[in-house]
Design a binder for these strands. Structure first.
Lengths: 235, 235
DNA sequence: CATTAAATGTGTCATTTCGACACAATAATA
DNA sequence: TATTATTGTGTCGAAATGACACATTTAATG
């Protein structure tokens, strides 16, 4: 038992943080939920929402706790991105950061809680410099989002329950920062069989009202872990 | 400063381990380099190669150290898989495990070092039960390998510098555990423009000698982070 | 009330890609 | 020289893709 103890006893314990990249979509742009820190360290600067792992808490649970604290939402899409552990990434003390990214319906969160945390939705194109290595985390998360959305039907997580094909197209155009052909996009999306016509139409339109669809949850679950092979047209 | 100290001081420090999933290919099967532990805890059982993060060591550096210790190789393909942090995953003490996976040329490693660590190459199909949550790590790594190899020209990392198209095909057949059509495979691979005909032929053949190709490093680098869209035929 | 403008739904067509399959070339062996 | 196993390359029809046209819906306009 002494031998066992030695291996463990002589090893370093580290602070373990959890940081969350929170994506939203307002109909035009992809946005991030960032906080202007009113606490140390780096008070006054922008950062991701985060916290430390608790003694008796799984990592995923920690991410969900932190997301709930800020947005009042649970049951949202959360995925482990990766872990950042450069020796000097946190100037106060060496800290490993386990990073998750979340996709939420931007209109569904708790406004009050967001205000209390001094948080704001900021367009991807206007993201300020962030503390520590949070910039790189955001970069990597965007790559992952693009990667994932090309292959899995993940985009729906950013939209309300009922949505139109033009809305979905705008979402993909925002994710990939490129224009897509309406007609080809529609064909591709409908060919997945994931969309169910609700019979309703989008009333908030000054011109032709688009059909409101909802996800076929069943097919969604079954297709989610399979490759999807959707990709924006190459040029 | 007291405020700052409180946030940090009252948080838990955790043991941080690094575990490595090491893939190899022997020409027929995908294999894992596993160790039969001659140390506690779980002495006598099989596990991944791992270790603890050192005080002044980046995570990636730690993975490379551990890989070098076992195989004598550096400059190999290593990618962060994900981090496992369930509260009770290690019965001795709560430990977070940052997991990497590596792809190596199975004939290039240091035999002596592998023997000294009581390690063995074990076919994916015969992997014994592993300690802790290492089974799930292996499962996830295989998923990642399949995912990645379908989209990026990653398979070459498992082959010697010069290789034939039939060898490459056998590799993909092993990764996806399915048979592929020779003629379609050849067409797809050659169409990527990544292969350069060395002019040499594989002399270890009792029949028609296959052309030896090597990677076009330049194109390889440029295509690596782009989607590749190679996938085995569906059925 | 007819016209216009903007947005949506659907269709066509040529090109490319993909899967299934056939045939010729190479090299050791009998 | 025939045989056998393996490798290289070609063909063909079906499906998917990108480029593009046209008709429909709706509010606003005169």
């Amino acid at each position: 038992m002494t031998h066992l103890m030695n291996r463990y006893l002589h090893s370093t314990r580290l602070l373990v943080a959890i940081d969350c990249i929170i994506f939203g979509f307002d109909g035009e742009e992809i946005k991030l939920l960032l906080i202007k820190r009113n606490f140390e360290p780096e008070k006054g600067k922008w950062s991701l929402m985060g916290g430390f792992v608790k003694e008796e808490e799984d990592l995923e649970a920690g991410a969900e706790r932190i997301l709930y604290e800020l947005t009042g939402l649970d049951n949202i899409y959360v995925e482990h991105l990766q872990t950042y552990g450069k020796v000097n990434r946190d100037p106060v003390e060496r800290t490993i950061s386990v990073v998750f990214f979340a996709l939420i319906n931007i209109h569904a969160h708790d406004q009050e809680s967001v205000r209390a945390h001094n948080a704001q939705w900021i367009s991807l194109k206007n993201v300020p410099q962030l503390i520590f290595d949070h910039d790189r985390m955001v970069e990597n998360a965007l790559e992952r989002l693009r990667y994932k959305a090309a292959l899995h039907p993940i985009g729906f997580e950013l939209l309300p329950e009922k949505f139109t094909i033009p809305q979905l197209q705008k979402l993909y155009e925002a994710i990939y920062d490129m224009r897509l052909d309406r007609r080809n996009f529609s064909r591709k999306i409908l060919s997945t069989g994931l969309l169910i016509d609700t019979g309703e139409k989008n009333e908030n339109s000054a011109t032709k009202k688009a059909i409101l669809y909802r996800l076929d949850k069943q097919k969604y679950e079954s297709k989610f872990n399979a490759f999807w092979y959707f990709m924006p047209e190459s040029s």
